[in-house]
Design a protein around this nucleic acid. Structure first.
Lengths: 343, 343
DNA sequence: GGTAAATTCCAAACCGCTTTGAACTTTTTT
DNA sequence: AAAAAAGTTCAAAGCGGTTTGGAATTTACC
């Protein structure tokens, strides 16, 4: 059932039917009602492609997921982010189209998305330091919002980010307040922007209290359980081992806990762990009271914010960049405690 | 730059240019080359919406992700599955459109996808027992492939699935061979089809050896670290505790291991764990030698297979249902060993 | 009652591509 | 050299909507 047929049924012109359904004022309320009812009973829905062609709007948002060609990891926060964004899109009648791109031809992907015109805007995932995508997208002229930020990029761009620096600074302060001086940082891959900011927050906090920063206590890499475990195991064998671990992900924290317990120590009493918690659906930090003390910030909510910001930007046809900085909350769980005196 | 403009530049008709670019035979090789070059230099790419409208094909596949309205969990395997499928789509010029749907109006979502015509086919995620979506989609008449199967559905449908029953049967056999008789099953949510099949494989294996099935040793729920931990902790306190755990996910296995070690036991020596491993990018079971003995089957590969099957079906315009059953391999790691004699 | 203004509807153009049917060239056959 | 066949190209008609510019009908006003 298409527009012409429906119009035929009603004895009206396609023009009028289209207008009636799209809420234009120049149509009699009685006929509008008649049209609406007919559309309902015939289960008519305008063809998406035709509508898109006619209006020039794709009514779709592209999410470009870079996949490192070496270790083809899909970021575990991705699923939750998507589900938050998807919620917003579906409420506004937008589709979400995903493009998985090996990171060696990202540029082609973005340009193609633009020239083929199948999206009205883009969400950029996994920003890195001095990310060249900002310049690319500014050049291309397609609205976009970055989930995260790009240190070292001076050009303006829209973003939604968690205040990673502040979160990790507060976390470090919290541990310092408990008397810890040997605090290890188990961070994400160090080309990722969020990892840089977390490192900065950590080192700023140490510097503010004149605690020396020990490179031996800093590690960065994929945030897996194994990473957490191996790092904790190795660091606890140091002559002057850490008394607290600051980890970038719940998985790393879980691994670190295992490493600690393997060493015959107890988390929270002998060694503290403080982790960042993205509140992923399938990786919960306890049910009510958290197990790990954490800096917490919902990735799903970040997805919603990104989506809303991008839709706003598109609706207003206004290219002026916006930004939103979300603060993480510091939630105290059972994994932290005052530093234990040696011997 | 659109087709008409390009044609103008070349002094050709849009017809010829279109044909040249789409590889039709009735165009002179010389002009074809000229057109190709002009398209290249002018960076011309046909408008997606126009092409879709003209051809009647959306060149897009829909993935409908049901979100339980109660516990809004996005399945952790989802990201990996998507990345496998996305690979295939992009090679064939298809887009992937995601729809996140609260499970109380899934039907509307499918019908809308159909009547608005923005996808050529659908991948169905998270099949449940007697899933009503098969009937719905057969009725709607849109090609689809189910990732998994739907026990209790008699209507024909296409699917790609791991042989869950056989995998868990073999896993149970493996543990039985090692002398275990008290084998606990930590399963997924029991309305999910894959969980049912795993339970079946488990109980069949026990029955074949006349080992009684003890309901106290069976638990099902969301496959989280906490689930694994709490279950292991509780079961190890039973008067006649299990000597081995069979878990449905690496997260549960990690939790179970923690529960075991908290009880002062050692995994692999005192208690065995055998888990299913979906080979998720961010949840690896060791690097080379696996930590957990496991039944292993790549979800990413399943994504590829589903995508290929669906594209084939669409290309051939042939509605006859296909299916593909993947076998999991049983990989021996360090988490299993012969049963330990009491006292 | 007649004119102006407002209301309501429609025919036709357009969005950018594909594809049908026909026309025009060139080559092959007789 | 004429006729038939093959090879190239194009004009025009879709695809299914939206939107412009009138036209037809009502209502408002003097």
């Amino acid at each position: 059932m298409n527009l012409k047929q429906l119009a035929g049924h009603l004895g009206l012109s396609p023009t009028t039917v289209s207008r009636a359904l799209n809420g234009y004022p120049e149509v009699n309320e009685a006929t509008r009602k008649r049209v609406a009812e007919a559309a309902q009973t015939h289960n008519y829905r305008p063809n998406t492609q035709a509508k898109r062609l006619a209006t020039g709007r794709a009514m779709a948002i592209g999410h470009v997921i870079p996949i490192s060609t070496q270790h083809e990891i899909v970021n575990p926060v991705f699923a939750d982010f998507i589900s938050g964004a998807g919620e917003v899109y579906s409420r506004s009648g937008y589709d979400m189209v995903l493009t998985i791109v090996p990171d060696d031809d990202e540029e082609r992907a973005y340009r193609e998305l633009r020239s083929k015109g199948n999206v009205d805007g883009i969400i950029v995932h996994g920003p890195k330091e001095s990310d060249k995508r900002v310049a690319l997208l500014n050049d291309i002229g397609l609205p976009y919002v970055v989930h995260g930020r790009c240190s070292g990029v001076e050009a303006p761009y829209s973003w939604v980010d968690v205040n990673n620096a502040r979160a990790f600074q507060r976390a470090t302060d919290f541990l310092l307040d408990l008397g810890h001086r040997r605090i290890a940082l188990i961070n994400g891959i160090d080309t990722m922007d969020f990892a840089l900011r977390r490192l900065r927050g950590y080192s700023d906090a140490l510097a503010a209290r004149d605690v020396p920063l020990d490179p031996q206590l800093i590690v960065s890499g994929e945030m897996t359980e194994a990473q957490g475990h191996d790092t904790a195991r190795d660091m606890l064998r140091l002559p002057d081992p850490p008394t607290a671990f600051l980890t970038a992900s719940l998985l790393s924290a879980m691994g670190a806990r295992r490493g600690i317990e393997e060493a015959g120590l107890r988390m929270g009493r002998d060694i503290s762990i403080l982790t960042h918690d993205d509140e992923l659906g399938y990786l919960r930090n306890g049910t009510d009271e958290p197990i790990f003390t954490c800096t917490r910030s919902s990735v799903r909510e970040a997805g919603r914010r990104c989506a809303r910001m991008l839709l706003d930007q598109i609706a207003q046809g206004d290219a002026s960049p916006r930004s939103e900085l979300l603060e993480a909350v510091l939630v105290v769980g059972q994994s932290t405690g005052p530093v234990r005196r040696q011997g």
